[in-house]
Design a binder for these strands. Structure first.
Lengths: 204, 204
DNA sequence: GTTGACAAATGACATCGTGTCACTTAAACT
DNA sequence: AGTTTAAGTGACACGATGTCATTTGTCAAC
């Protein structure tokens, strides 16, 4: 977490710094990003950066969380819109994400994150869906899901269903970025996989 | 790829260097590993390292490929043993991987890789299953699969089934390592998810 | 309005890591 | 032996990180 001094900063200066950081993280993935570039672009001295943040990761995960928090709200909206149909909700979510493309900087930021995923980054992303246990979002999703459509009413199994869906959604994002699929191709692939998940891979 | 000079090295010296590198990559993930440590531990001068490899990534992905190549062969064996039943094959594969634990160094090496996955690392792993298009391994798997068990005979859909299976297998490995699950827990989770994949998430 | 105390700002610096390059040594071939 | 080609070597230039002693700013109390 950023230090208190960061939040005490005048709005304008704080935005400047955030912009500079986003720019750098859109340019290159986390491990290639340099604090030197951020402070240079933000026009602040190096020492100041360390007044506000512990290190590079600190500001990175702060920005990433900001980003994913916004998406989580979107996801819950979709889940409600689709009456707890998790597959429809997630498909709509994926579709909307691709179509109303974030601006270039945001796009590149997420692209870099997804193509250079570490476990911590994946956690930050998936927290948008399943939430941390202590925040209770996971349970919230389970409650909102329409269990009548599902093959089971067992919470443990539903938990694993969510894990599967998240893994496949994630994979599709990565594939979209790494193979530079068009939106249409990406959505086609996504739909095929969601249907396979629904109906199962094997004959019954 | 390592340079020719590396392969020209006397067996013993080469093994020494490989050992030193594996040790370092077992200690910390790729981006924290230092060439300084490797050459120090291997007892070779820094300049020599660059005679053999382009950089850190070069030796890392070489080692990772060695590792995954061995596993790919195992996977094909399993696929044959289980008469093309991909889920059974992959479950057996997962089980065996966990039980006949690699030695500590190998274990930590893979753990570090899996917990700090980048797209390139994931590719190296999944290549073990699906192979590169140009090597034809993907087609090979498709041919070996018993399509009669599947919900479709369409190659495109089967391709996506494989992608799904790979994504879920991958997720289970990461979960096992990140949550430090016992082997029993890991296998239980895996089995649940494989059954969900087989039968589908939704009622039909 | 001066003082004192605390928070924030600053940039030089110590440290460490990378990749290169000019030079040395060894090997192979004539 | 002499020449050419490959491999070995470590000092060095460069760039990045995180720290710290010092300076600057702020604000309440007197």
């Amino acid at each position: 977490m950023p230090k208190q001094t960061f939040f005490n900063l005048p709005e304008k200066k704080r935005q400047h710094l955030i912009n500079a950081a986003e720019e750098e993280f859109a340019r290159v993935p986390l491990h290639e990003a340099s604090i030197a570039n951020i402070v240079k672009s933000a026009g602040i001295p190096r020492g100041s950066f360390y007044q506000y943040f512990e290190n590079k990761e600190d500001i990175y995960f702060y920005l990433l969380k900001e980003e994913t928090d916004a998406r989580r709200i979107k996801f819950f909206q979709k889940l409600e819109e689709h009456d707890g149909d998790i597959i429809n909700a997630v498909t709509d979510f994926y579709y909307e994400f691709l179509v109303e493309l974030p601006d270039d900087r945001e796009f590149d930021f997420l692209k870099n994150a997804l193509l250079h995923v570490t476990h911590k980054i994946e956690d930050a992303f998936t927290a948008a869906f399943k939430g941390k246990h202590d925040t209770g979002f996971f349970n919230e999703v389970i409650e909102m899901i329409d269990k009548d459509r599902l093959n089971t009413k067992n919470d443990t199994e539903i938990y694993h269903m969510l894990q599967i869906v998240i893994a496949v959604v994630f994979r599709n994002f990565v594939e979209k970025f790494s193979k530079e699929l068009s939106d249409d191709e990406a959505i086609e692939h996504f739909t095929i996989e969601m249907n396979l998940l629904k109906n199962g891979l094997y004959k019954n």
